[in-house]
Design a protein around this nucleic acid. Sequence first.
DNA 1: TCAATTTATTAAACCAGTTTAATGAATTTG
DNA 2: CAAATTCATTAAACTGGTTTAATAAATTGA
Lengths: 190, 190
Amino acid sequence: MENLKTKILSYTKVDMDVLEREMKKYTRITLRKGDTLLEPGHVAAHMYYLEKGCISYHKEEEGEIKVLEFYTEDVYFTDLLSYVNQTPSKYYLKALEACVVLAVDKQRLERSFANSHQLERFGRLSMQEGFTKLLSRVERMSIRSNEERYLRLVEKRPDLFQRVPNYLIASYLGITPVGLSKLRKRLSKV
Amino acid sequence: MENLKTKILSYTKVDMDVLEREMKKYTRITLRKGDTLLEPGHVAAHMYYLEKGCISYHKEEEGEIKVLEFYTEDVYFTDLLSYVNQTPSKYYLKALEACVVLAVDKQRLERSFANSHQLERFGRLSMQEGFTKLLSRVERMSIRSNEERYLRLVEKRPDLFQRVPNYLIASYLGITPVGLSKLRKRLSKV
DNA sequence: TCAATTTATTAAACCAGTTTAATGAATTTG
DNA sequence: CAAATTCATTAAACTGGTTTAATAAATTGA
């Protein structure tokens, strides 16, 4: 749990005894490639911390996949839309590789926040960080040409191309696998 | 300040004396159409609450406008990327109509959070709400066809079409004004 | 209120990405 | 390890949006 502790402390000071007690609330889950952490119709009851691996946050409708986000090491994630309102999710959280995840359920986490100003503060700041990251994503999505969006992704998250299949990258970029293939070919010619 | 108080209390309980003291930290700013609250190169020093009007959060590069968000009544807003890291902004926050805005500077707000667990909690929950709203935006952006994205916007934020010029709507949707015009014509024919 | 400016529409030529389908490469699994 | 499945590329025909430019409509402001 060292990475998680370090993560929390990177946001704000938390007393060691509080932090140790907090760690006890998390359970470690190991996932094999293809395993599902959340699927449509279910309510997201947990907040997750990704110790190891890569998770896709995506929708599947009419046989089409729409990737909203790829999560990689040392980030918090869940389906926030379902988690916040405790409504059925429309999304999948699926392991793209073998993963190790730390899970804490919402009630417990809320209780921690209520009982400790320090942890509440950590909660606010980590939420803020997630927000700014998503804002960068929107910034990148708002680029009109596929080519520029692709190049930006190569620049910002080069690791994804090693660990995520091409057709999911295409979906993340908002194009078809065929479109991505043509785009790459065009780029390699110049 | 009644709307703002109600907003804060909708997130969590805050003692009246704390709330009243908090209100004193906000200053009311009135903007005329076209006025700028933040421009590129400047650091976002304030968090804002929009009492009245409509604000665009956008970028201007090579004569092209890219709208990331439209803010309307009773939401918090700022350039979070600049605000959080205190780095120069790349964006504009501009009044699309006459606006009334409440502003509080970051230092003061941070001090409030540090001094009051209740306010810290409010900070966390309002950040969470902003996050989920942005997530819905990403969800809508990830729709591939312009037509569906347009119809979704008509459904979700019909008011925007009354108060925002068409070419900004087009930018928000990720297409050109010409493209939007053609799209509307096609839809009206069916 | 009229002139100046900004915004919206239309047209025409063009192009990047889509769809469908086929082939080949790579990965998974019994 | 071979067979089955999944994934990536290519081709061809098509389509929806782009660019550029011109005109019309609406808004602004002197």
